[in-house]
């Protein structure tokens, strides 16, 4: 094999790759934050006494989890305008990833809520706390600490899913990598550097989440 590695074209546009990486991180952060809220509400809905809430949440989780994320991205970006809802590509992707994240996080949070001893709720009731206060000050904080390891995996996975935003021309890392690839024909170099950037970003996210896990862990 006589292929000579030459990273010059990649280094020339390295700042655009970094900008793409930055946008990817922002997309992930916003979507995960919204997804956490959706997931939490849906988890409570799944465990609710009201059948309508349970059924609605269950339908949402089933539909989203059984649809490939790429299909969801295309559906929301290309099909919604047909129904009169026109969204810019970035908001469209954020909505998609948030809905997707929400469905997966619902299951994580539901498991976390089920694992909380019922005695904690009773202890909250016994000192006069209301149901919402118990959720806010006891159930959710304890549950979040318990599910942090599972959340870390989901967060990293959701960050990697931002690469699919390239399908609707959101200018994130994969989008710019494809552009550099097409313009320079340096296929191996472009994708090696892109891979390295994803790996580094994921590794840093994992380190940060592990630090948070240790910091917030319930002391024993």
């Amino acid at each position: 094999m006589n292929y000579q590695l030459n990273f010059a074209a990649v280094w020339r546009d390295f700042d655009t790759l970094l900008a793409g990486l930055g946008l990817g991180l922002e997309l992930a952060l916003v979507s995960i934050a919204i997804g956490c809220v959706i997931g939490l509400l849906m988890a409570f809905a799944l465990l609710s006494k009201h059948r309508a809430l349970r059924v609605s949440a269950s339908v949402y989780v089933t539909v989203i989890r059984n649809t490939p994320i790429l299909v969801l991205i295309l559906l929301i970006y290309f099909a919604l305008p047909g129904l009169g809802i026109r969204l810019d590509k970035i908001p469209s992707f954020i909505i998609t990833l948030s809905l997707y994240a929400g469905a997966y996080l619902t299951e994580v949070f539901r498991g976390g809520l089920l694992s909380i001893p019922k005695g904690l709720r009773e202890a909250g009731l016994a000192i006069g706390l209301g149901e919402w206060q118990i959720k806010a000050y006891i159930t959710v904080p304890v549950m979040l600490r318990n599910v942090l390891p599972a959340l870390s995996n989901n967060f990293i996975s959701l960050f990697k899913d931002t690469s699919l935003a390239a399908a609707i021309a959101v200018p994130e890392l994969t989008y710019y990598a494809r552009k550099i690839n097409v313009e320079s024909y340096r296929v191996i170099e472009t994708w090696l550097v892109t891979t390295a950037l994803y790996v580094a970003a994921c590794y840093l996210i994992a380190l940060l989440l592990r630090y948070l896990e240790q910091r917030l862990a319930i002391r024993r």
Binding site: P117, G119, L120, E122, A123, G124, L125, A126, I127, G128, Y137, I138, P141, V142, R145, I218
Partner: peptide, 17 residues
Amino acid sequence: HRAMTGMAFQQFNLFPH
């Protein structure tokens, strides 16, 4: 009304966090 009583449980039920 619950706040008018205090309760100590068999399993303590302290908030672990």
